[in-house]
Design a binder for these strands. Structure first.
Lengths: 347, 347
DNA sequence: TATTCAATTGCAATCGATTGCCTAAATTTA
DNA sequence: TAAATTTAGGCAATCGATTGCAATTGAATA
């Protein structure tokens, strides 16, 4: 489909028999322009249905007023919320969003980042894929003079702006809460340990055990129980141990926690009295399972806004005063029925 | 933050003492270029960390390889899935996505569309906001020679490409199914009637009643029960009628259906035996409520892919042979426990 | 040896908007 | 009235990549 010829500032200039530069000045409302000619130009512009060619403008100005975003999956609750938050904050500043998804593939992530560099976006916001690997493509972003902001899943070795959750702290709180509820053998479903967030979630778990003088039992720690299905499989194995756990912290996700709940129900194990369950992310469904699932809210929309704000704040800084800031957002432990066996307040 | 100077084709040309045009030809692998100089150019390009400036390229070529998307909310399941589908299909073709959300506001929708026109996107994909209003901004898109594709919520009077669900048909199926299950007084929670999709859902409901020779009872049709809260409120009113319904088709959304379910549970009304419930959208949670909720799957990811495919197919067409195609995707009625009181197969 | 042809590569215009510099007219001030 | 300012608006370069056309070169053909 071919674009029809669109009116340019030259068309307006020609029609009014003036210079294109005057048209530009009038449209941007800068420089000295006679008020009457300005109005004339403006009305001619609407008459010709003139639309500024942002491409040309950006090329000339050397900036694109565009923020590029790379996330593992656009349609995952957490990410789509972050994106919505970024959109809202940056729209007000006249910025646009170009969005890519890496599908958790390192290769696609690299391609996405390169496309965005080519697009001359002003800033790239990224949460790296689970696959992990070499992060030279991110170094590339920095070398290209593009602001890089990492969030949630970050390559910590890179000195960039970061927006994170205080994952370790809240994980510790979650496990401490379970201990307080009298659970003695708490299992952990852990995520891929090449991602910091999962390392931290585990650290929080270990810390909580240590602080409460509880032993670390290796057979209760299960790797990569990431999805509902994997969570279910892991749970089946755990509950069939000679000495099964009496609680499970599904640190990978709420989906995993859901898998735990379903298996427990199927096996006739009562939640929370015989098994405590805690998930991660505060997915909408955690509120409506029976029992409802204790989980952790990451304030995803707010996180998106923080990312955008951080960028705009940095942009105003002098080049010299720039330091790799890390913003930490404190997530909230949401205690629900699945871990409430002492205080029956949680319904 | 200022961008550092990036290498251009001129830098490469200067370094090798050749013309920029040759560099361009080499990088694009077009025209006749000596294989050796080509290799030399390519290696110099990597050496200088050359990245093509897509802005300049697009300006020159008069296309942007970008698809603009406007949806009411990025972080709504249905929309984020459609976007994910579009992304996947268009990424393969080397297209990028610029995404905006209208937040259901007509004014913001217009602004978004205008920004996208300025950006010279090749195609605009839109699902209009619930607020509705005048659609001249969409006509504008067409007049600018930009391909316009509407999906789901469309301004039907505009002759554009459209990708829709066969909403009326599936709604009829849903209500017919409820009738078959022996429900006699089926209520409808309807959405804003300025949007076609909601008109069609209602039409399906009415049709099903008519076909089965059942009376249309006005007091059982409730306007704008859109959210969980509104669904709950409506349900409370309905169930307190002297002659309450024995089933509710929450045609607005699954959230609304969830509101229905919660109120019914709170009032001690048994689902599905005393009250049947059917939602719309197949949100993840509908599967895990107790009882699970009968709903309608819209194949949102597939819809996204269809949109992208439609665009690429149209793009290859001759200008002349272009007609306003409408693609209709048949949604699927997913029968679950909340309406299954005859066949106990659905648990 | 002269002519033709194809392969390479250079030149310069172009896409549309912006902006530094400059001129001319209008206005103010001395 | 002359000089100094201010205001309005034109000229032309620029951003970086692409592409039609022309020029050069060497090889092939007559």
């Amino acid at each position: 489909m071919k674009q029809k010829k669109r009116a340019t500032i030259y068309d307006i200039a020609k029609k009014l028999n003036i210079a294109a530069s005057s048209v530009s000045r009038a449209l941007n409302n800068i420089g000295n322009i006679n008020e009457e000619t300005r109005k004339l130009i403006l009305s001619t512009a609407t008459e010709l249905k003139y639309k500024r060619n942002t491409l040309a403008s950006n090329l000339r100005k050397g900036q694109s007023k565009t923020i590029g975003i790379v996330v593992p999956r656009i349609n995952q609750n957490f990410f789509s919320n972050v994106i919505a938050g970024i959109e809202e904050a940056s729209y007000q500043k006249g910025y646009n969003l170009v969005i890519c998804q890496s599908n958790e593939s390192h290769v696609k992530e690299i391609q996405c980042v390169n496309t965005l560099i080519n697009q001359h976006v002003d800033c790239i916001v990224i949460s790296v894929s689970a696959e992990g690997g070499d992060y030279s493509h991110l170094q590339n972003v920095i070398d290209s003079g593009i602001q890089l902001i990492q969030f949630d899943r970050v390559a910590s070795e890179l000195k960039t702006l970061k927006v994170l959750n205080d994952t370790e702290q809240v994980s510790m709180e979650a496990v401490s809460h379970m201990i307080e509820q009298g659970y003695k053998r708490i299992a952990l479903l852990e995520g891929p340990q090449n991602l910091d967030i999962f390392i931290q979630r585990k650290a929080g778990y270990l810390n909580a055990l240590k602080k409460n003088n509880m032993p670390i039992i290796n057979e209760l720690v299960v790797e990569n129980a990431w999805t509902k299905e994997l969570g279910a499989t892991a749970t089946r194995a755990l509950l069939n141990l000679p000495n099964p756990p009496d609680a499970i912290f599904a640190s990978t996700s709420d989906f995993s926690a859901l898998g735990v709940l379903e298996v427990a129900s199927a096996m006739g194990i009562k939640v929370p009295s015989e098994l405590g369950i805690c998930g991660y992310s505060n997915e909408a469904f955690t509120e409506i399972t029976s029992p409802s699932i204790t989980t952790i809210d990451q304030f995803s929309i707010y996180m998106g806004k923080s990312i955008a704000d951080l960028y705009f704040r940095e942009m105003d800084q002098e080049e010299s005063s720039r330091t790799p800031i890390t913003i930490s957002i404190k997530p909230e432990l949401i205690i629900r029925a699945s871990t409430s066996r002492k205080t029956q307040s949680g319904k």
